[in-house]
Design a protein around this nucleic acid. Structure first.
Lengths: 131, 131
DNA sequence: CGTCACAATGACGTTAACGTCAACTGGTCT
DNA sequence: AGACCAGTTGACGTTAACGTCATTGTGACG
C-alpha cells in the first residue's frame, strides 16, 4: 500500500548509477544481498535494493566480506519479526559499531603516520636543495 | 654498523606476536612485502619487517590489496634512490592519503547511520513496551 | 647416534568475488 | 517475418590470499 509502484530500475540503470556490472548485481541476488522483483524474466530493482547496494559497496570499501555485509544489512530492515531475533540483531549492530569505531581510530592513526612521512620527505627535499 | 644485531625474531615469534600463520609470512616474503634475513636456511625477521607487517595488517583491515600495500610500503622506506623515483613516491603517498581521508569521511557517515538505526530500534522497543 | 620438533620448500587445493562465454528468450523496429 | 537488441541462465575461468600436505633438512637433546 505504501510501496511506490514506480521508482523501479532496470539492471542497466543500476549499473550506470552504481558503476557495477550486471554480473555483479546478479551475483548479489544469488547471494541474497539483493532481491529485485521480476517483470516476466527481467529484474527490476526497488528503492530497497538501491539502499542495500549503497551499503554493500560502502561495506566493501571498508574491507568487509559480502557475507559480513549480508548479515548486517538486516540491521537496516526493521520488519518486526520476533523479539529474540531483534535482540540478536541489536547485538550484531553493536558489534559492528564497535568494529567500525576501532577501524576509525586506526584509520586516524594511519593518516597521521602517512602525513608524518610526507612532511619528513619535505624536510629531506629541503636538505637536498641546500646542497 | 647501526643495525642492532639482536632484535631478530624467528617465524614462530612473529606468528605469535602478530597472530598470523607461517604460511602467511612466507607468502608475504614471496610477494616481496617482507625480506627477512637468513640464518642458514631459517628466516629471521628484522625490526623493519615488523614495522612493515604492522602496516600490512593495518592496510588489509582497510580493504587494501597486498599489491596496493606493497607499493605504499616503500613510502616508509626513505632510502635516497633518485629524484624522479621520489617524486613518484610522493605522488603515490598523496593519492593514498586522499583515499584514506575519503574513507574516513565515509566511515564517519556509516557510523552515524548505524547509530541512528540503533536508536530507532530503541524507539520501537519503547513503543512495544507500552503495549 | 637416533629422534624429535621445528623450518623450509614445492605443489596442489580452496574460497570469495566476480569475469567471460555460449545459448536462449522476449520485446521492438522496419 | 527478419533483424537486432537488452536481458537471462548456466557453466566454466580467473585472481588474490592464503590453507594443506608431503617431503626434506637441521639444530638440540637424551
Amino acid at each position: 500500500m505504501m510501496t511506490a509502484n514506480t521508482d523501479l530500475m532496470t539492471i542497466r540503470e543500476m549499473c550506470e548509477t552504481f558503476d557495477v556490472t550486471p554480473r555483479t548485481l546478479r551475483f548479489y541476488e544469488a547471494k541474497e544481498l539483493l532481491s529485485p522483483v521480476r517483470d516476466g524474466t527481467r529484474r527490476l530493482f526497488t528503492r530497497r535494493d538501491r539502499a542495500r547496494l549503497t551499503l554493500i559497496l560502502r561495506g566493501k570499501r571498508f574491507g568487509f566480506s559480502l557475507e559480513d555485509i549480508r548479515q548486517t544489512l538486516d540491521l537496516y530492515d526493521r520488519d518486526g519479526s520476533n523479539e529474540a531475533q531483534r535482540k540478536r540483531t541489536r547485538e550484531l549492530a553493536c558489534e559492528r559499531l564497535a568494529v567500525m569505531e576501532a577501524q576509525r581510530a586506526e584509520l586516524d592513526e594511519a593518516i597521521a603516520e602517512l602525513r608524518a612521512e610526507l612532511t619528513a620527505g619535505d624536510a629531506d627535499r629541503h636538505d637536498q636543495a641546500a646542497e
